[in-house]
């Protein structure tokens, strides 16, 4: 196993994101099992004050020259390659997130190391690391062994505990000078989320619809249930991409993260990208025609059946109950 394990800490708009703590927790466990040290790398103008939050690392390397804010993937991969040489690191953990998209693949090519994507579990084993990847929308897992413990591993958000990567101590912080090549990609501005008529992150009840709702007209059936429950309708990516509901209603990786009291997953298979955005709902009720849909593995209650038959019946029963 490598002497040093690196974690590319992630921040967005001056906030350390949960994936960073998930990676630190996973990295801490691997470091302890293999006698390695855990080193976090944080890039960006606001990196220095944020570094203090990364106490689970043995050391935090900080590059806070402004060009690092949302720097292109190849520049960040180049910086990580330089840090790997300085620290003699052989294992790098990155987030399998939109923010970090492409960095891992580029780093793997630069260093000649293998990359393991969509990783949801990792354990040290006989001098190496065995990673479990979730593939095909979470329907299949593959175990991959990095025999010498060296590689680039992209960690899937929500798969590791956040708390395991939090410590109340301040880590040693070291500033590093990293080369920034003249970028061919430059960040211009943030485009704020579209504010819709409804803020789905503030609802007690959400009626989520996916591909299984079949047509735009059928969304109305979900709308009726949401109305009688005083909640709102939201959706997984395919429904939003069809233009059946506005972007402000998207739940998942690129969309909103929601935690309502009750979340209906109607005709939603439960692909990891969607699960990421609603897994912490208090009560998840899934309805799907596919009895083997992954959503049933995480939901509290499940119904194998046709959403279009169940919705009108349920709306009527709720109305009756409410009087």
């Amino acid at each position: 196993m490598a002497n040093t394990i690196l974690v590319l800490a992630e921040q967005l708009r001056g906030e350390v994101t949960d994936i960073t703590f998930e990676m630190l927790g996973a990295g801490r466990k691997l470091a302890e099992a293999s006698g390695s040290s855990l080193c976090a790398v944080l890039l960006g103008a606001e990196a220095a004050p944020l570094a203090a939050k990364l106490g689970a690392a043995d050391k935090v390397l900080v590059a806070d020259d402004a060009p690092w804010d949302l720097a292109p993937a190849d520049a960040v991969a180049g910086a990580l390659e330089a840090v790997m040489q300085q620290t003699q690191a052989g294992l790098v953990l990155l987030g399998c997130t939109n923010v970090a998209a492409g960095i891992g693949s580029m780093l793997a090519v630069k260093t000649g190391l293998p990359l393991v994507n969509f990783c949801r579990a990792a354990k040290a084993e006989g001098g190496g690391v065995v990673c479990t990847s979730q593939l095909f929308g979470g329907k299949i897992y593959s175990d991959v062994k990095l025999a010498d413990g060296k590689g680039v591993v992209c960690i899937y958000p929500g798969a590791f505990p956040v708390d395991a990567g939090k410590r109340d101590q301040a880590p040693p912080i070291e500033k590093v000078d990293l080369p920034v090549a003249a970028p061919k990609v430059t960040f211009k501005q943030y485009l704020e989320p579209e504010t819709g008529d409804v803020d789905i992150t503030k609802q007690n009840v959400l009626v989520g619809v996916g591909r299984g709702i079949q047509t735009q007209d059928n969304v109305e059936l979900a709308e009726e249930l949401a109305q009688v429950l005083g909640g709102a309708v939201c959706a997984s990516r395919p429904v939003i991409d069809q233009g059946w509901l506005p972007l402000s209603r998207q739940v998942g990786k690129s969309g909103m993260t929601v935690k309502p009291r009750v979340y209906f997953a109607l005709g939603i298979s439960g692909a990891p990208e969607h699960w990421e955005g609603m897994q912490n709902s208090q009560c998840i009720i899934a309805v799907n025609t596919d009895a083997k849909a992954p959503i049933f593995d995480g939901a509290h209650y499940g119904v194998v059946g046709d959403v279009l038959e169940l919705l009108p019946a349920l709306t009527e029963k709720v109305k009756a109950k409410k009087g």
Partner: peptide
Amino acid sequence: IDDLEGELAPLLATALELPYVGV
């Protein structure tokens, strides 16, 4: 959904030495 070894776009950009943006 089967990108176990990483995504095509950044790998292609690296091979072609072209700039890349994902998502």
